[in-house]
């Protein structure tokens, strides 16, 4: 498993798509801040520096989710498209080991993208919205980074599961983006119909980012439970699926 992970990282850092993903993530985060500034008048915000502490607005615009899904599909679906993963299975690497090595690589990618995105947001916040940089600000940024990383890991797990099951990059990306945009609406409709309150949507992977507050109270318990839950459930589903199918 370690060897496969080493190969994944080698490939990731050799692939131009990875650099493109990092640059894209930074640009996307910058666009999110710009969008906040440009629409401030329309929302009745007179002093743009008021936006400096409204981090939910930045994250609410999918500053990390969109680049994460696109990066994952670009970096991980190629092995299924090119069928190069069959060489690893033929070399005696079990399908479970293969999945876990990809999962860990995906979680590392999430950490890197969260770091790039939040660093860009933090810098943009200072440059464009004149946020005051002090120990409290840095501490809040670090805690926010940690919380968002855990929250986005749930999304990463769902994404790698979809990639492994669908095996076609374009379909996997459409499915994940649809889950991001429509998932909440569908699940909320379902829980309303079943009178479950917000039992489902509270643990929906794409809702977890809302439980991480900048400089406020982060629901660490909920985001951690969601992360572990998705880790177990998605791993079982994906490995069962991979084991059932022969490799063409």
């Amino acid at each position: 498993m370690l060897n496969v992970m080493r190969a994944s990282f080698y490939k990731m850092f050799r692939d131009k798509a990875f650099v493109l993903c990092l640059v894209g993530t930074a640009c996307w985060s910058m666009i999110v801040i710009m969008a906040q500034v440009l629409t401030s008048n329309a929302r009745g915000i007179v002093d743009v520096s008021e936006l400096a502490n409204r981090w939910y607005g930045f994250i609410g615009l999918h500053a990390i989710e969109v680049p994460l899904i696109i990066s994952a599909v670009l970096l991980f679906s190629g092995e299924f498209r090119d069928k190069s993963w069959k060489l690893l299975i033929a070399k005696g690497i079990s399908k479970a080991s293969y999945f876990f090595s990809k999962l860990i690589s995906m979680l590392c990618l999430t950490v890197i993208l969260c770091f790039v995105s939040i660093l860009t947001l933090a810098i943009g916040n200072v440059v464009l919205l004149h946020a005051t940089v002090d120990a409290a600000y840095v501490g809040n940024v670090l805690l926010f980074f940690l919380g968002q990383t855990i929250a986005h890991c749930s999304i990463a797990i769902i994404t790698i599961m979809v990639i492994c099951i669908v095996k076609r990059g374009e379909i996997a990306s459409i499915l994940c983006l649809m889950m991001m945009v429509l998932g909440y609406v569908i699940l909320h409709g379902l829980e309303s119909a079943l009178s479950l309150g917000e039992l489902i949507t509270d643990y929906w992977a794409f809702s977890q980012t809302a439980f991480v507050d900048f400089g406020g109270v982060t629901n660490w318990g909920r985001i951690s439970i969601a992360f572990l839950g998705y880790l177990v459930v998605c791993s079982v589903i994906t490995i069962t699926f991979l084991k059932q199918k022969d490799i063409e």
Partner: peptide, 30 residues
């Protein structure tokens, strides 16, 4: 299977990498 080498059907290569990078990547994986 660790003692085996396979070429089944068409060549399964990573099309975004170079010839050397493909070998380097699989050497690490194996």
């Amino acid at each position: 299977r660790f003692r085996m080498g396979c070429l089944i059907d068409s060549p399964a290569l990573d099309t975004r990498l170079s010839v050397r990078d493909n070998l380097e990547m699989f050497a690490r994986a194996f």
